[in-house]
C-alpha cells in the first residue's frame, strides 16, 4: 500500500540518478493531474451521497421548486419522523441481529472446518476442500426458490431462515481464506504444544483460536457486510406482515408506501446508509485485505 514510503527507505539519497528519476516519476507537474483526478473521483463518489443527505433536510416543496438547491430553511422533520418511528429501529435491530448471528456462525463453523483441513493429515482432505471451493460457483441466486421451499419444510422461519442459509453460502470463502491462514502458523508451535502434552483439540482452543484472530476478523467482517446488505434472500423469505424485515427491505417498503415523499425517502435512504459507512470506516483495512485476499485465493 505504501509504495512511496518503502522507496524512501530502500533508495539511498546519495544516488542522484535515482532521486532525479523519482522526481520525474512523481514529477512536479503531474502532481496536479493526480490531484485533479483525485478530486473528480471524490466528487463523483461523495457528491450523490451528500446530495441525498442534504435532500433529507429539505421539504418536498423546496425540492420541487429547485432540485439542486441547498436546504433553506433546514427541515429537521424528515429525519426526526424516521428516528422516532419504531419500525425503523426494529428493522435496524433485525438487520443487526441477523448479521451478528450470521457472522458468529460463519466464523465458528468456518474456523472449525478449516483447522483439520489445514493441519491434519488424512485421506480425502483435498477432496473436502475442493467441495468447499466448488461452493464459490453456487450463487444464492440460483438456489433461491428451492431454498425457500426447503426452509418452509424445515420450519426455519424469520431470522433463522436468513441466518442459516447465509452461513452456508459464506462458508466456502471463509474456508478458502482460513485454511492457508491456519496452515501458515509455524509447525514448531504445534510440536512444542504437543511436547507439553496438549492434544490436537487443546491446540485448537489454546493456540489456533488466539493466533487466528486476524483471519477470523477478516472473514467475519466480510460475512457481516454481506448479510447487512443482503436483499434477495430477505425479499423472498420475509414475506407477510409479521416477518422480521431487515433494513434493505425497510428502505424499499418506505419508498413503496411514501412514493411521493421525496424528502422522506432521501432521509430514510441516507439513514440506512450510515451504519454501513460507519462499519466500513472502522473496518476499512480488514475489508480491503479480505477482498484482495479472497481475490488472490
Amino acid at each position: 500500500m505504501t509504495t512511496a514510503t518503502t522507496t524512501g527507505a530502500t533508495v539511498s539519497p546519495t544516488r542522484k540518478g535515482a532521486s532525479r528519476a523519482r522526481a520525474q516519476l512523481t514529477g512536479d507537474s503531474s502532481i496536479y493531474i493526480t490531484i485533479f483526478v483525485a478530486l473528480v473521483a471524490v466528487a463523483l463518489t461523495l457528491g450523490p451521497i451528500i446530495y441525498l443527505g442534504l435532500g433529507g433536510f429539505r421539504s418536498n416543496g423546496q425540492i420541487a421548486a429547485d432540485p439542486t438547491g441547498l436546504p433553506d430553511p433546514w427541515v429537521w422533520q424528515n429525519y426526526w419522523n424516521i428516528l422516532t418511528n419504531s419500525t425503523f429501529w426494529r428493522y435496524t435491530l433485525n438487520s443487526l441481529i441477523v448479521a451478528g448471528a450470521t457472522t458468529l456462525g460463519v466464523v465458528v463453523f468456518g474456523t472449525m472446518a478449516a483447522y483439520p483441513l489445514a493441519r491434519y493429515q488424512f485421506r480425502g482432505r483435498e477432496g473436502v476442500f475442493i467441495i468447499f471451493t466448488a461452493g464459490l460457483m453456487f450463487p444464492l441466486t440460483v438456489a433461491i426458490f428451492p431454498l425457500f421451499l426447503l426452509l418452509q419444510d424445515l420450519g426455519l422461519k424469520g431470522m433463522w431462515g436468513l441466518v442459516v442459509p447465509q452461513v452456508a453460502f459464506a462458508l466456502p470463502v471463509t474456508v478458502i481464506i482460513m485454511r492457508p491462514f491456519l496452515a501458515a502458523l509455524p509447525d514448531e508451535l504445534e510440536e512444542a504444544a504437543f511436547m507439553d502434552g496438549l492434544t490436537r483439540v487443546g491446540f485448537f482452543f489454546r493456540m489456533i483460536l488466539p493466533l487466528a484472530k486476524p483471519g477470523m476478523v477478516t472473514v467475519g467482517v466480510l460475512a457481516f457486510l454481506g448479510s447487512w446488505n443482503a436483499y434477495l434472500l430477505p425479499l423472498v423469505i420475509l414475506t407477510g406482515r409479521d416477518a422480521p424485515k431487515t433494513l434493505p427491505l425497510g428502505v424499499t417498503e418506505f419508498q413503496g408506501q411514501n412514493a411521493s415523499d421525496f424528502a422522506g425517502i432521501m432521509a430514510y435512504t441516507f439513514l440506512a446508509m450510515i451504519p454501513a459507512l460507519v462499519f466500513f470506516l472502522m473496518m476499512e483495512r480488514r475489508i480491503v485485505d479480505g477482498l484482495s485476499g479472497a481475490v488472490k485465493g
Binding site: 463518489t45 451521497i49 446488505n229 436483499y231 434493505p248 435512504t269 441516507f270 454501513a276 459507512l277 466500513f280
Partner: peptide, 20 residues
C-alpha cells in the same frame, strides 16, 4: 472514499440514484 460505494447496500445506492 473511492471504495465507499462498494460497501453500500445495492438497495440504498439504487434508491439514491433513482432520486437523483
Amino acid at each position: 472514499i473511492i471504495f465507499a460505494p462498494y460497501v453500500l447496500a445495492e438497495v440504498t445506492a439504487g434508491l439514491m440514484w433513482m432520486m437523483l
